[in-house]
Design a protein around this nucleic acid. Structure first.
Lengths: 205, 205
DNA sequence: TCCTTTATTGACCAATTGGTCAGGAACAGG
DNA sequence: CCTGTTCCTGACCAATTGGTCAATAAAGGA
């Protein structure tokens, strides 16, 4: 999906671009696009500001590169839904994978959350384009299973939305969840059986 | 919860403060705290920038006032859960109220979303304080119903989180939802039966 | 080693932006 | 009317910040 090709990079370029993207991920996911400064990114990357701008022409470009680079990884689990698999097991595997991504990659989750909240200025064409296609494909598989009576009948698109909402909530609203639960809780550990049970009850025929 | 008292305001003060808060709600919910400028707020309010700063000493103060003012309204539905009511009906009423709030007040939803994403710099004490208390109260009611066998047994706190996640998703990620569904869909109209069915299936004994 | 290419940076610039201030306009109440 | 208070604004300031640039340092290949 994202263009992974391009001119070959020197070792130094590869390393520094990676450092910058890593630092930018931290900065953007903490403060949003406007809130993050190039200086912050530079410091997080261990480089000077002009050096950052040497590898990426603009702050905007860093942001766009991050988004498009990470989008594939973010959507990968949905594309692994196997039409030949056992319906409920496939859905549960997707749900579990998505929750695991929230747990392991909360910065990425927040990065996308900011972008969508903002109105997705850098992702509009992708949202209505390839993302929509991927979702439609998954929805068609689900719909098929429902038509065969192997899964309870619900709106497949909203089923997918619900999985996104439930799992990403634990990454995006982490501070709220932890504040409400108080110390001594691991939100993700507790969330898994809850969400598991939820989809089992809703989707079992 | 929020301090609604204070010195009496002249008619003109009342009107202009309202204009400013209304403009600020639009600005902050669209661009986040850092992204919104005092000029934007002033223009949205139909006032000059110095005049805005005449009514509120700082941009920060406007933001804090907005959050605390709106928090009560935002949490109100949860406090209307009636321990003497019919369990499933009470939960469903709460879910429906929350979805309706997402539909009617998406700006407020986004305002809170930005704040929590940011790490809730203005709400930390509230999150772990009164909010936690309110949630615990509601959770206790739910737990009680479950102990009486009038509601399926699930983690009550995560049940509440799931309601927040599912309903606010349609306000906060509106552009994504609409982009994926394509034109000719009303997300909220479709979401209601889906979510309704979800909680009915999960919570019926 | 030499020389071309690539990396790096301190100093700087222009635009944005939160906030100030002195003074004027509108508006009470007497 | 007059007068004190409230309301409003143009002009301005200092800090922040995205981005530039000339000059220097480091690689790297022949």
């Amino acid at each position: 999906m994202a263009d992974q090709s391009g001119p070959t990079l020197t070792r130094i370029q590869q390393k520094n671009r990676d450092l910058i993207l890593e630092g930018a991920l931290s900065a953007f996911s903490t403060n949003g696009f406007r809130g993050a400064t190039v200086d912050q990114i530079a410091e997080a990357a261990g480089l000077s500001k002009p050096n950052v701008l040497y590898y990426f022409p603009t702050k905007d470009e860093i942001h766009k590169t991050l988004l498009t680079t990470l989008l594939d990884m973010w959507l990968a689990p949905m594309m692994r839904i196997d039409p030949k698999g056992e319906p409920l097991a496939e859905v549960m595997a997707y749900v579990r994978a998505k929750l695991e991504m929230s747990r392991r990659f909360p910065r990425e989750s927040r990065l996308f959350a900011y972008e969508i909240l903002q109105g997705a200025p850098h992702l509009t064409e992708i949202l209505g384009g390839s993302l929509r296609g991927i979702v439609d494909t998954a929805a068609a598989i689900l719909q098929n299973w429902m038509d065969q009576g192997r899964l309870a009948r619900v709106d497949p698109h909203h089923l997918i939305f619900s999985i996104w909402a439930l799992t990403q909530h634990y990454a995006d609203f982490d501070v709220q969840v932890r504040a409400v639960l108080g110390p001594g809780h691991d939100p993700f550990v507790e969330a898994e059986p809850f969400i598991d049970n939820l989809y089992r009850k809703m989707l079992s025929v």
